[in-house]
Design a binder for these strands. Structure first.
Lengths: 186, 186
DNA sequence: TTTATAAGTATCGACTCGATACCATATAGC
DNA sequence: GCTATATGGTATCGAGTCGATACTTATAAA
């Protein structure tokens, strides 16, 4: 069998293990994914639409998942007074504690047992495949703010950095988070 | 971020893409996985128990998934006359046609666009991580028959090969299929 | 002002999933 | 041979995902 095909089968099996692992930890796989995303997303990206794009699913499904997480006391929603259609999502402390025990760590541990060179090679290979797969289906990469073509480091107007697209000041921690608007440099 | 952690995140996102892709193709992700397994499993492994072990889920869930696939006319179940508790599953022609259009191929295509060396490295890395992850959670590897410690090539009694565990003759195609009983050589 | 668009929500039906309870069949102990 | 137990599957429940459809409300555009 060619290696591209084996990779796919291996990927499928690892995905299944990931699913089982997270299922066993009290939350559904999708709920974990939402939690992880929200913990890593910046303030422009912690809303239902961005999560919908990230998960590649539909608004309705995301709405239900967020309801389930809200019922469990893992997040709170609040409407933006500037544009009352927007909903901002904040994770609760409870959610952050749960994320510390995220069962996905088991997979990271398994990977960490590889020799350093192989680890880096694996990450590179996966990154390329993901980018290619996203390209083919028109998905967004969801990179971090500071890797964006609109990112302006060392803003002159006081703030550490600035977003050239939304024209807002950015903190250092902002710049390290995921952004829906992120676009690779040309 | 260390590369083990990035790998996990990349894996998570690829798993999600895989899920979306298969969802869009009319069957649930789990149904596709069952179909794929059944198509690649040998005659000792095409039953609910083996599929349960492969998917790492419970008998009840598998039973329901098989019912759903049966309703769709993608498989038939028949009880083994020798041991009437056993159920053997056969895929229909319809199922094999569907598998030809398996949406998972998109991921294989994406991987195939990598340079040959990176492709092989990716497959190796994934294999090691999978084995490590399986080891940690006590799962079985589900290798193909001919890689088993009980596999006896060139059987003297007429049949091409032989299984030293179940003590039965094996065809050449048998030996290339997945077996629940498969164990790596010591 | 009307119209269009954007952001979310609610509801439906099919399905997964773990848990529990259950049934039929086969094997072991005596 | 006869009961106890283990094995292989199934049925049902409740919570949740998922896509589809329909809907509400809020902003933007004509």
């Amino acid at each position: 069998m060619e290696s591209a095909e084996s990779s796919t089968i291996l990927l499928e099996r690892l995905a299944r293990i990931l699913q089982n692992e997270t299922h066993a930890a009290g939350l559904k796989p999708t709920q974990w994914e939402a939690l992880r995303y929200l913990a890593r997303a910046n303030r422009f990206s912690r809303n239902p639409s961005a999560l919908t794009a990230y998960l590649g699913t539909t608004k309705g499904t995301v709405s239900q998942t967020l309801n389930a997480l809200e019922r469990k006391g893992l997040l709170v929603k609040k409407t933006d007074p500037a544009d009352r259609r927007h909903v901002d999502i904040d994770l609760t402390e409870k959610a952050r504690h749960r994320l510390d025990e995220d069962p996905i760590h088991a997979l990271t541990d398994a990977t960490a047992s590889l020799p350093a060179g192989e680890q880096a090679g694996l990450a590179d290979g996966l990154r390329t495949v993901l980018e290619e797969a996203l390209r083919r289906r028109g998905g967004r990469p969801f990179g971090v703010c500071r890797s964006c073509r609109f990112f302006r480091a060392d803003d002159s107007q006081g703030a550490p950095h600035r977003c050239g697209l939304l024209d807002v000041p950015l903190s250092d921690s902002d710049s390290r988070q995921i952004c829906v608007e992120q676009q690779a440099p040309c």
